[in-house]
Design a protein around this nucleic acid. Structure first.
Lengths: 420, 420
DNA sequence: GAACTTTTGCCGGTTACCGGAGGAACGCGC
DNA sequence: GCGCGTTCCTCCGGTAACCGGCAAAAGTTC
């Protein structure tokens, strides 16, 4: 397996993946190899069924060049996003576009065997031929040792510590599997689908959901940290937080004062004490106040709810200001249920960060809401998979030297090494 | 210039640089290329004068292999570390070992022309033939746009904003020049000279001097941030800091309560109010209290000084705890004058971090003093230079294809591109 | 429809890498 | 000190891969 070949192969495929409809001359210029090499690689990729011609491009005076695109429908990858009470399952094509989605109610405390068995059952229902799966990406709400695919001491996933999530799926589907922290996948998904995020080589993705976490991109690559728990900012000490006890047992945690659970709790308190007639109605109707109810009330003009969200934003912003000075990202992306609900949180975050961070660090900084929608976690998971599938080392095995012109046996190549 | 050749060339040179006395068979195994290629690259490097034979290694039964080493004396690089009141200037060989050092008193507020002219005069005195300089590394106490070598809005360097430091040296010495933030160079120097730091792929170097700053390593590479100011934690908001005004104009900055200036200020207050007879003596003798006097007093058993340093350590540790949770480094290295003085600060930092950070992030975390001595900044600067000099792209230009067996003209090759 | 431009396949030339063969250097045992 | 086995190292032929000229095919423009 000559190293150069797989390198140029991956370079060509990457360029086609990144620029649908790219032409051969453009590839020559972009990839920087000679014409014959590019042409040979394209032929290889076409005979493997990974690339097809997609019409002809605009002519610049002579013959119009043919446009190439990834044959995204050549295979499917599975993304699984595990949450505390819900699990998202998606099937995507090789371009990372979701073509099927399912959402299941689970209890993560039921343990990995029950939850992952449930996930397998759902995938098997959507995708009867399990041999069609090219790869699997799993996001979990806790730290993961990425190299081995083992969760490490996840605080909100009792019974999952050290469970071989990766090996289980790799064996069951005979397909390579990668497991990562959910927030890392959000960051990755943002970078892969939002050009502005890709352009900012250093990025922080902040998720404000029930908990609070961050995903870090350094120089275009995920920074996972030494134990795989980088970005775990839910339990750092926040400002003005006297006496609030967090689910982790400590007091003063950011999550305990600005997370979704805290917002719901304070919303309920407002509803009960007459601080918000709107939320009092909601409480009466459903018997509970969720974070979504607070954002809903804020949208409908409730001053108490707006103040509550603004306070949460300020608290997150205060911590984020320190992190921005420290990390100096070019872009901060804010996602998660709470942030998705409106501008009240975002505006407060912006104000805090711009006020408290080093001026130079905020000179070109932008703080934007995530462009990903509901399926954000799945998007990241499937992009992780296709990125890894099309990495040079793995590609070399699919398209072995001097491969026959026919379709290489894509369904079985993964077997020799479940997930390296 | 074939890409492969320069790649294998750099790989061989890197291996020799990293393992002095490596043998040809070891290189074959380590670099992973065939015998003939390795032998050819060694011949090339020898004819260029970069590598020489250094005796023969132990025989394992047959002919003993010859050992290779970098001919570090083949050239010299210059390191310049600019501080607020002092400037360190060093000459190092190609292995990054300092062979000359000078320290000059300056005032950085005199502006770049005066300071850099002074630096050039000192270098010219030590090194009469300026053509002998292979490269120059400059550390400055403020943010730098690394790609262009321009300081950007450095708070404590009036008049330096946008001054072409790199181009000035590159022109004057006709040698490639790199400029970086001083703290980044400390981190780099630590990684290059301390095997434990190199092993921890994610590292934070915290410098506590007059100011406070950090250098970040992500996956073995410097994380400089989007504006080159990553690690600038001197002006984040610290805990328990009501009303203290910082030199930056804000209040509550970490630097204003735990930096060297703050320690000196509080030491003086202790001396004046009778809180420390020892420091009162010092004050009477010299008319001032510096941070070094406080650490000195702490060493000699002064409880007030010890408490003062412990408080500073706790404050740094509190911020660091957030950063450790966020960044999840494998190692935190503490350096700078204040930290170098003793264990009082370090112990307090350790206690704060271990108490407040996420348990998983501290499970394997070590917090250690820097192994670099006085010349820490210079060490980083010269290592930056040799790293860049021996990077594949630059190496390819030195040893052009089919170079004559004689010495290539190393003194002039840099001219075509001062510092890319 | 003709001239021109551009794409694209083909092919020889060149470069670089690999590993076998044999000479050279070394340690060991007698 | 001398042969023998072992290992290092160099030379050299074979092979893989890349480059770019050439010409045919496929368009565009006039």
């Amino acid at each position: 397996m000559p190293a150069e070949r797989s390198e140029s192969l991956a370079a060509v495929l990457d360029a086609i993946r990144g620029h649908q409809g790219i032409t051969q001359p453009m590839l020559i210029q972009r990839v920087g190899w000679g014409r014959s090499v590019i042409a040979a690689r394209i032929t290889e990729l076409e005979s493997a069924g990974l690339v097809v011609t997609a019409g002809v491009g605009p002519s610049t005076g002579g013959r119009a060049p043919r446009q190439l695109r990834l044959r995204a429908e050549a295979g499917v990858v599975v993304g699984i996003g595990i949450g505390a009470t819900r699990m998202a399952i998606g099937i995507a094509n090789l371009a990372g576009q979701l073509i099927h989605r399912a959402e299941e109610r689970i209890d993560v405390a039921d343990g990995p065997d029950a939850v992952l068995g449930h996930a397998e059952a759902v995938v098997d229902r959507i995708l009867p031929d399990r041999r069609a799966v090219w790869g699997i990406g799993v996001g979990v709400p806790g730290p993961v040792e990425f190299a081995t695919g083992l969760p490490v001491a996840p605080p909100i996933m009792p019974g999952w510590d050290g469970y071989p999530v990766r090996d289980r799926f790799a064996r069951h589907y005979d397909a390579p599997t990668w497991v990562d922290n959910e927030v890392n996948l959000l960051a990755l998904g943002e970078v892969r689908t939002n050009p502005a995020a890709a352009a900012a080589r250093d990025l922080v993705f902040v998720k404000i959901g029930t908990g609070i976490g961050a995903g870090l991109i350094s120089g275009g690559r995920l920074h996972r940290g030494h134990n795989g728990c980088a970005g775990d900012i839910g339990h750092v000490v926040a400002a003005e937080t006297e006496g609030v006890i967090c689910r982790c047992g400590n007091s003063g945690c950011l999550e305990a004062v600005a997370g979704g659970a805290a917002i719901a709790r304070e919303g309920r308190w407002l509803a009960e004490t007459g601080g918000s007639p709107l939320m009092a109605e909601m409480l009466a109707a459903t018997g509970a106040i969720r974070a979504a109810d607070v954002t809903n009330a804020a949208y409908r003009g409730d001053p108490g709810a707006r103040a509550l969200l603004a306070r949460a934003g300020r608290l997150v912003g205060a911590t984020l200001a320190t992190l921005v000075s420290f990390y100096n990202p070019g872009l901060v992306v804010v996602g998660g249920e709470v942030a998705r609900a409106g501008d009240y949180v975002l505006a407060a975050i912006r104000e805090s960060v711009y006020r408290r961070s080093l001026p130079l660090a905020t000179r070109t900084l932008r703080i934007e809401p995530s462009t990903l929608g509901e399926a954000a976690g799945l998007t990241g998971a499937v992009h992780l998979v296709v990125d890894e599938l099309f990495a040079p080392a793995r590609l070399a095995r699919w398209l072995p030297y001097s491969s026959p012109a026919g379709q290489p046996d894509l369904a079985t190549v993964e077997a020799d090494d479940p997930a390296a």
